[in-house]
Design a protein around this nucleic acid. Sequence first.
DNA 1: AACGGCGGCAACCGCCGTGCT
DNA 2: AAGCACGGCGGTTGCCGCCGT
Length: 253
Amino acid sequence: MCSPMPFSNFSPTFSPAFGCTESEDMRKPCCDKQGINKGAWSKQEDQKLVDYIRIHGEGCWRSLPKAAGLHRCGKSCRLRWINYLRPDIKRGNFAQDEEELIIKLHALLGNRWSLIAGRLPGRTDNEVKNYWNSHIKRKLIKMGIDPDNHKLNQYPIRPQPQHDVPPNPTDTTSMNVACKLRVSSTDNDGVSDAASYLEDETPAAVSNLDLDLTIAFPSSPIKIIEENQKKTASIVRNDQEEQHTAPTLLLFR
DNA sequence: AACGGCGGCAACCGCCGTGCT
DNA sequence: AAGCACGGCGGTTGCCGCCGT
């Protein structure tokens, strides 16, 4: 799912089908929900799971709880291992570059957290998803950016310079901001293409992902010309003015 | 000090794709 | 071909700690 499994060859005794004989365990429900612990994991449970996977490796999650002496559903064990116990988990705050990468990848892939997390070594999909929902989403909303489609859905909360033509606040379509990506897709319809594009890349290559998330108001040809003239003029303006005329996502400056 | 609101995060739920019988 | 179980994924929930009143 995410980064390559460090324990894939963890133990020479690893057998993917450990405790998973067809006659005994195949084609049975995941768990009968009876006598199954739920909720937070205790240290003892964590230790049991870690110890078991250290010896036997991952595989056959359904039979794992029984084999490891855990009163948990296999899914729960898998989740606990992947999201918390794996030794390559990078815990702690997200770095600025990680945050930027998440935003860029989300613009490309949407809510495909496992794909996004796969580009962030040591981060899990759950962690990325939580960070997006609790931090980034709010941040973007504050900036007047729709976190779902990465378009400007309201004018950024900042004083407007007189020389700029303010968008009609009642015309929401004119407020749309296109995220221009230098990859094959330019909108959500291209997500699958972009996803496959990403999937073919190595993590190292992704770090060079050249995403231009400059945003611009879609307009008529005349307006586009006017935009270009403004942009050209804005080059010689100071940085503060430039922020008003060329609404680029601040995060990518 | 007590209480309530809020945010962060771990964990669960339910669906889907895949592979096996 | 159909049915079933498994693994994986995204959405959602609920607990817990922090902070303000």
